[in-house]
Design a binder for these strands. Structure first.
Length: 422
RNA sequence: GUGGUUGUGGUGAAGUUGGUUAACACACUGGAUUGUGGCUCCAGCAUUCGCGGGUUCGAGUCCCGUCAAUCACCCCA
């Protein structure tokens, strides 16, 4: 009978061993920073009704092509969440959070998201996103605060040289005017453009602007600029955001061509990338303002702003820059058994553990040499050796691995003695 | 979704124009040292080359398919 081979599904990964310490460290940093900035955790379901994610005239690939959508046994149309914001807004409205707390309501989430993409480095089908949302108040200061929090997390991770690309799309009206003007402008040039841009022309004209193929064509230089379509109010607002970033010394670059993938953004949009942007999947966090989203969920005309952060990408960057120190795996005590004394060893191990001392032992009657090697690998500070002698006399051999001293210790003195050593 | 590259033990990897026993290094296990490790020496450790099929007297080496990783594009966190 051939053994059945199991393999993890495409685009997923097991996280364990050395990696897990980086994940735990990052989660610790996130929770601590969110606490400082006043954002509270929210945990929404991993799947929602599909309509939660699908907007009225959604043009993004994310919702049109990449969702894991399925029917449950009750024939409900459900989808695995491809991003965090929509579920949070749904919850905000459903739980009427606007009714009983001060605005803005500041929330953060952390967990797996799912997109049916072709996987590659920094792009997974199940991936982890951390994100924040500040809902209910519109202020340049709040936009800046979200960026400051994201930036501060990258700093805590030790990541250097992150720069914020930022732009303003204006309100929904100026955004749609701009889109119209773009299409108008490019219409005569359409046959000069690459096939991707022809498609973008129909689906998402804003995206044409940062096309890698056509970007340098002469006609692109004179294309209408987003900025020229902003009304006075939006312009002033944007300037205040930039002023705020200046005041906080957050490095940024205004990028006229920056548009976000999701349709719900308006006004401020931003994206954090490493300065020496080499890889393709380089964006570590990205977000912006979404004036109409709460209303589209039936929650009244309330604005919001937030970002999503790719945790795999953050960890990859931190590891590449070698910037995150995770605590070293080491134990306090390793118990070596010689002969048939495992039950005695077990008793010692349990006693030590119950006193808050990290302890390990050998479970397979290995040689003395092998057990010493294990103790080394575990980086034990103290080694306890027990054999027939020690068992019969109710003592142990206690060895300090640093200065190599060894002594007899009575069982009842053990805890006190070990505690003084570790 | 499109195109390219890759896939050999726990790890890093050699493997020549297809020719019986799959190099080497590290790690691991045992012994020299039957109660004291980190050095040294010796020994052991892939019925098999991602998986499936084909060509051939013969395939890790060639062909097809498939799965996966990776790069560029698309997209995006």
């Amino acid at each position: 009978m051939a053994e059945k081979k199991f393999q993890l599904p495409r685009g997923t990964q097991d996280i364990y061993g050395e990696d897990i310490s980086y994940w735990q460290k990052m989660e610790e940093i996130i929770r601590q920073q969110c606490e400082l900035y006043g954002y509270k955790e929210i945990r929404t379901p991993i799947f929602e009704h599909t309509e939660v994610f699908v907007g009225d005239n959604d043009s993004s690939d994310m919702v049109n092509k990449e969702m894991y959508t399925f029917k449950d046994k009750g024939q409900r149309d459900l989808s695995l969440r491809p991003e965090g914001t929509k579920g949070v807004i749904r919850s905000f409205v459903e739980n009427k959070m606007y009714g009983y707390v001060d605005m803005p309501v500041k929330l953060y989430y952390l967990g797996p998201m799912f997109r049916y993409d072709r996987p590659g480095k920094g792009r997974y089908r199940q991936f982890y996103q951390f994100g924040i949302e500040a809902i209910g108040t519109k202020s340049p200061l709040l936009d800046v605060e979200t960026i400051a929090l994201g930036y501060s997390i990258t700093k805590e991770m030790g990541i250097k040289d992150v720069v914020i690309l930022i732009n303003s799309l204006g309100d929904y009206e100026s955004r749609s005017n701009y889109t119209k003007a773009l299409k108008q402008y490019f219409k005569p040039y359409l046959k000069l453009l690459c096939s991707d841009c022809k498609r973008r022309y129909e689906q998402n004209p804003l995206r044409m602007l940062d096309c890698k193929v056509d970007r340098n064509l002469p006609c692109f230089a004179d294309a209408p600029k987003c900025r020229d379509f902003l009304n006075e109010e939006s312009k002033q607002y944007f300037n205040l955001v930039l002023k705020g970033l200046d005041d906080l010394n957050i490095p940024y670059r205004v990028d006229d061509n920056l548009v976000r993938g999701l349709d719900y953004y308006s006004n401020t949009v931003y994206e954090a990338i490493p300065k020496d942007d080499d890889g393709q999947q380089a964006t570590v966090f990205a977000g912006g303002q979404y004036d109409g989203l709460v209303e589209s969920f039936g929650g009244g005309k309330l604005p919001g702003v937030g970002f999503g952060m790719g945790m795999e990408r953050m960890i990859a960057l931190a590891r590449k820059q070698n910037s995150l120190t995770v605590k070293e795996e080491k134990i306090d005590v390793y118990v070596i058994s010689l002969g048939d004394v495992e039950t005695y060893s077990c008793k010692i191990v349990e006693l030590l553990r119950n006193n808050g001392i990290k302890t390990e032992m050998d479970y397979q009657k290995r040689s003395l040499k092998a057990q010493f090697k294990s103790a080394d690998r575990y980086k034990a500070k103290v080694i306890i050796i027990v054999g027939e002698n020690e068992f019969n006399n109710n003592i142990v051999q206690l060895k300090d691995t640093v200065n190599k001293t060894q002594e007899d210790v009575e069982f009842k003195e053990l805890i006190k003695k070990v505690k003084s050593m570790v």
